[in-house]
Amino acid sequence: MSKKMKAALALFDRTKSYTVEEAVKVLQNAAKARKFDETFEIAMNLGIDPRHADQMVRGMVELPHGTGAKVRVAVFAKDAKAEEAKKAGADIVGAEDLVEQVLAGNINFDRCIATPDMMGLMGRMARVLGPKGLMPNPKLGTVTMDVAKAIEAAKGGSIEFRANKEGIVQAGVGKASFAEGKLVDNVKAFITAIQRAKPAGARGNYMKKVTLSTTMGPGMKIDLSSVAAETSAGKAA
């Protein structure tokens, strides 16, 4: 264990759980000793079995202060919509030519958007983009005629979440250089989105464990009772 990790662990009690505010303060102070801008990462262990369709947790959430990461966006579109995508700031725009690039293994983007008329072509790439979580999906707003809005959301802090086969959802929710309040806002927005995405088939305890950490730092357990209070208040509002 490195000296920096030992120093970080000395800042809190690993047997206890903390509020989001407390965890952000501790982790941010520890991360300031690093030579790069660490990512704040959240992991949520959910009481679901993703093997059943009615227990899958997947969706999009727009973090109020973005992720702090540069997002490369590819748009599959033609003619006027292709021009619209370029003007809106898409990093890569194409149709059949872009499909061939992807099938050749050239995937130089983090998010993928397509207009509905492109879905016939997109099917050819499902085996390539699907496992990487990049396949456009109408339910997630990434198959749309409003490509400008989708690009703005992708670059502005909209992130996709999806439970893995163990029922865990993970995501980066900001950078250590963010103001403390902005990190807290982002973490709570993500937790609220997961709570609202609770599937109909979920039974019993839905949020089993929530942990907040930084790229090189230790994980801190979040007090589930405080999280439940926050999400309940959000729903009531």
Rank of each mutant, 00 (worst) to 15 (best):
T19S: 15
L63Q: 02
K70E: 14
A30C: 12
V61H: 01
V61S: 02
E62F: 08
V61Q: 01
M60V: 15
D37G: 11
A69P: 04
V73G: 08
N106E: 15
V99W: 07
H65C: 05
F40I: 06
A43F: 03
E100T: 14
D13P: 03
A77C: 13
L46F: 04
M56D: 10
A90M: 04
R111W: 07
D97Q: 05
F109E: 00
E100I: 08
T15H: 13
A77W: 10
R51M: 09
F40E: 08
E38S: 03
G89E: 12
K70C: 00
A85I: 11
I107S: 06
T115L: 09
N29L: 07
K16W: 05
T19K: 02
I48V: 15
G47V: 00
E62K: 15
L46D: 00
L46T: 01
P116E: 05
K78C: 04
P116R: 08
F36T: 14
V93A: 12
A80T: 13
A95Y: 10
H52R: 15
K35E: 06
G94H: 01
L27G: 08
F109T: 03
R111P: 01
G89A: 11
I42Y: 04
V71Q: 13
D54M: 09
A95M: 03
R34E: 15
A95I: 01
A85V: 12
G89T: 09
A88W: 07
E96T: 13
K70T: 15
D97V: 00
M44T: 01
Y18M: 09
I92W: 06
A74N: 10
A114S: 14
H65L: 06
E41Q: 11
K35Y: 00
D97S: 11
L98S: 02
A53M: 09
E84Q: 15
N108K: 11
K16F: 05
V102S: 00
Q55M: 09
E62L: 15
E38V: 05
N29R: 13
F76Y: 12
G59I: 06
K35P: 05
G105H: 10
P116Q: 02
F76S: 10
V102F: 01
Y18T: 04
V24Q: 09
F76A: 14
N29C: 07
V102P: 04
G47D: 02
K78H: 09
Q101P: 01
D49T: 09
A88K: 05
K16G: 03
K81F: 10
V93H: 12
V93S: 09
L98C: 11
A30F: 09
Y18R: 12
V61K: 10
V102N: 03
D54K: 05
Q28H: 11
P50E: 05
A95R: 00
G47W: 02
A43Y: 00
D110K: 02
R111I: 05
A85S: 09
H65I: 04
A77L: 14
L27F: 12
E62W: 04
H52C: 01
F76D: 08
K81V: 03
K16T: 07
Q101H: 08
A31C: 05
R51C: 01
E22N: 03
A53Y: 03
V20E: 04
F40W: 04
H65A: 11
V20C: 06
A95L: 03
D110M: 10
V24G: 12
G105A: 14
V99N: 14
T19Q: 07
T67L: 04
N45Q: 11
G59C: 00
E84G: 09
V99M: 14
I92Y: 13
K78P: 08
G105C: 15
K16H: 10
N108H: 07
A95N: 09
